[in-house]
Amino acid sequence: MKGDQKRRSRPNVRSELLFLLAINGVLIGNVKPAVIFALVLFSGLLLCLFCRISTAAKYVLTYCLMFSAEHLLMLLPGISLFHFIIVISSVLRKFIPCFMVGCLILETTTPGNFLASMQRLHMPKVFSLPFAVVLRFFPTVKEDWHSIRSAMKLRGIGLSFGNVIAHPLRTVEYIIVPLLSSSIKIGDELSAAAIARGLGMERDRTSVYDVRFCIWDHLLMLAAAVFFVLITFV
């Protein structure tokens, strides 16, 4: 089926975003720990199915570690330090499920797919195009970042603890200047190539991606409703 209209068997970014919005309540209110845990597992499942298992494992394990650490510390005598760690941990770990879904979106949505999906939603190009470029640009910035870090290591100005503490601003300067110059150059070349191939504001684009909802989208939207209820009312 290569080259034909692409039907991906994974949820579309629209339903992923909906799911993310639905579970945002986890950050706000008092949610039962069991529900949060179920959410973490579900997000982990999504990552396993549509992204990488290692990523899923990483986050689920982190959550479990934090949860266990808190409850262990609660059993011990109440020193201020322990209390502090418990509070911080219990706050931070609630961000994990949302972060996981965010990871899913960023890792599995391609710029072209995003543009096509947003066009379906009739989202104006002024928003969808820059965001598509963000999606396109993140991996490039990541590559550049690694490269710059290597270069810094070779020059002895690397991101070691000592360097960051001793001259924080200069270290930041060392990172930002090459990153900016490189990104601008890439950005210019990227724009020129896109414009030369007809990217513009005038016409509606079509897409080779088939962005109709598939079974995964319906399941995901159902899950979104379920979790929304669980989070808000239970």
Partner: peptide, 17 residues
């Protein structure tokens, strides 16, 4: 522009509509 090769091959055509 795209990060997927097929999507990239389609980019020009998509812009043409």
């Amino acid at each position: 522009f795209d990060t997927d090769s097929t999507g990239e091959m389609a980019f020009g055509c998509e812009n043409m509509g």
